[in-house]
C-alpha cells in the first residue's frame, strides 16, 4: 500500500454545503496513505490554482446538480495541468454521468463504495 507521497486535491464546485460525502472520501483516501488537500467549496479558478500550487497528482471534485460548472472546472484544470487525472463524486444524474465519462472523467455517484474509490485513486495516480 505504498502511496509514495501521492497528493490528491479535493474540492467542491457547488455552494450547497453537503460536506458528508467528500469528508468520508477524504478520510478513506488518507487512511490509504494519500496526502489529501481539501479546499472545500471552490470556484473553478480556485480549483485550478490549488491544483498548480499544491502540485497534485489527482483532482477529486464533489459535484451536484448541473454539471456545467464541473465541466468548466475540468476544462480549466486540463488547460493548465493536462497530465492530471480527475474523478468526481456526488449527485450526478445518469445523463450527466454519461457526459462526464465521455470527457474521460470517472464518476462515483451515491452508493459507491469506499474501497472502489480508493482503488480508483491508486490506479489514476499510477500506483496500480
Amino acid at each position: 500500500m505504498n502511496t509514495a507521497g501521492k497528493r490528491i486535491l479535493m474540492a467542491k464546485t457547488g455552494l450547497d454545503g453537503h460536506w458528508r460525502g467528500p469528508t468520508v472520501v477524504a478520510k478513506a483516501l488518507r487512511d490509504a496513505g494519500f496526502e489529501v488537500i481539501m479546499i472545500g467549496m471552490a470556484r473553478p479558478e480556485e480549483v485550478v490554482q490549488a491544483s498548480v500550487d499544491e502540485d497534485v497528482d489527482l483532482v477529486g471534485l464533489n459535484i451536484g446538480g448541473h454539471v456545467d460548472v464541473a465541466v468548466r472546472a475540468i476544462g480549466m484544470v486540463r488547460e493548465s495541468r493536462p497530465e492530471v487525472p480527475i474523478f468526481v463524486g456526488g449527485v450526478v444524474p445518469p445523463h450527466a454521468r454519461r457526459k462526464l465519462e465521455a470527457l474521460g472523467v470517472e464518476v462515483y455517484p451515491p452508493g459507491s463504495q469506499l474501497p472502489d474509490i480508493v482503488a480508483a485513486a491508486r490506479r489514476l495516480t499510477g500506483l496500480a
Binding site: 457547488g14 446538480g65 448541473h66 460548472v69
Partner: peptide, 26 residues
C-alpha cells in the same frame, strides 16, 4: 435557491457568477 438564499448573495455576486448554471436548481 441555496446559492443566493443561504448566503444572502444577489446573482451578480462573484461566488454566484462562478456557479451560474447551478442557480435555481435547489
Amino acid at each position: 435557491d441555496r446559492n443566493t438564499g443561504d448566503h444572502c448573495y444577489n446573482v451578480d455576486h462573484p461566488d454566484v457568477v462562478a456557479r451560474r448554471e447551478d442557480v435555481g436548481l435547489t
